[in-house]
Amino acid sequence: MNTEWKPNNWIAVLFGVLFQPFVFLYVNRPRYFFYYLALTLGCIFLTQYPISAALFSEGGKAQYWPYAITIACAIHAYILSSNYDVSQKRSWCARWWTTLLCVIAVYSSVFLTKTFFYDVYSIPAASMSPALNPGDYVVVSKHGYGNYSYAGIPVWQSKSTQTVQRGDIIVFRKPENETTDFIKRVIAGPGDKIYYQHKRLYLTRACDGCSEYELIDNVEIDNAAKSEFSMYQETLDGQLYTIQQNTSKPEFIQHYYRQQGMRLGEWLVPAGHYFVMGDNRDNSLDSRYWGFVPEQNIVGKAVYIF
């Protein structure tokens, strides 16, 4: 049924400034919503690639793209509302309150998903190379780990119901620096004993009758003939991954975290804690240097890397 309805020009401008693509739902042009949304996502996508990131970074020619899109949405929405054809069919979303509900629904979904289920983290450093390199992104499953936050702001804390396995890559808050998220590989869990010497990893699992150290399988796949790094395939509880070592760099054993009653370079993981290391063994500030990760500090587990 046709109605004699016309969008308000100034509501259109306000929505264009505040909600960008969503304004086109209000002015009854939903296809423009998808056009501008695709444009916004495309710009975000381009900022992640080195070939175009310089254009969108501070000082780059395209650094003002968010403001340009906002202004374009506001002006375009004003033009469409001013020239609105009152004879056209009015969509269900062409009301200020339904548009507002769409905004709330979308942002609430994003908030709940990123807080309680899945979030995407960027990798800024090479401590987890070669598995994770600077510029990579990792999808982290957060559900069940109990340490829920959004954009680094704590939202909810509960008891963890997930099982952390040796070999898992986890995101966590480092003790005494709980404002920053870190990502490392779990090497040992509660009750396990670790010994790291001459860049080799030894593990005694927490189990009845387990008292002898086991040398973790470590097979060289690329030596340092052409570079200073050697690659090894390490196998831990059935998980196969590649580690990187700098053959010219000595062990900084004098800087290792010293646990009372243990030798230097040897650690016994306390109950409710985990021992983590970076795959780039000679370029990783991890549990060897500052100790153990409390279970309540674990944010989630890496499930997909891109």
Rank of each mutant, 00 (worst) to 15 (best):
A54G: 14
A54V: 14
L55C: 07
L55D: 04
F56G: 08
F56N: 11
S57A: 15
S57W: 02
S57Y: 04
E58M: 10
G59W: 07
G59T: 15
G59D: 08
G60N: 11
G60Q: 12
G60C: 11
K61Q: 09
K61A: 13
A62P: 00
A62S: 12
Q63S: 12
Y64W: 12
Y64G: 09
Y64V: 13
P66L: 15
Y67P: 00
Y67A: 15
Y67Q: 12
A68P: 00
A68H: 06
I69S: 04
I69F: 05
T70K: 08
T70E: 07
I71N: 07
I71M: 11
A72R: 05
C73E: 07
A74C: 07
A74I: 11
I75R: 10
H76N: 14
H76E: 13
A77I: 10
Y78A: 15
I79H: 08
I79S: 13
L80G: 04
L80M: 10
L80Q: 12
S81R: 12
S82E: 13
S82A: 15
N83M: 11
N83V: 06
Y84D: 00
Y84P: 00
Y84N: 05
Y84K: 03
D85W: 02
D85P: 02
D85N: 15
V86S: 13
V86W: 06
S87D: 13
S87A: 09
Q88W: 02
Q88K: 12
K89T: 15
R90P: 04
R90I: 12
R90Q: 14
R90C: 04
S91T: 15
W92Q: 06
W92K: 10
W92Y: 03
C93V: 11
A94Q: 01
A94E: 01
A94H: 03
R95V: 06
R95L: 04
W97Q: 07
W97G: 00
L100D: 01
L101P: 00
V103T: 14
V103S: 01
V103P: 02
I104V: 15
A105T: 15
A105G: 13
A105H: 05
V106G: 10
V106P: 03
Y107K: 06
Y107W: 09
Y107I: 07
S109W: 06
S109K: 05
S109I: 12
L112M: 10
L112Y: 11
L112G: 11
T113Y: 09
T115H: 02
F116W: 05
F116Q: 05
F117H: 11
F117S: 04
F117M: 11
D119W: 00
D119G: 12
D119A: 11
V120D: 09
Y121P: 01
S122E: 14
P124S: 00
A125C: 08
A125G: 11
A125E: 13
A126G: 15
A126P: 10
A126F: 04
A126R: 05
A126L: 03
S127Y: 08
M128P: 01
M128N: 14
M128R: 00
S129A: 14
S129L: 03
A131W: 00
L132Y: 04
N133R: 03
G135Q: 04
G135N: 05
G135L: 04
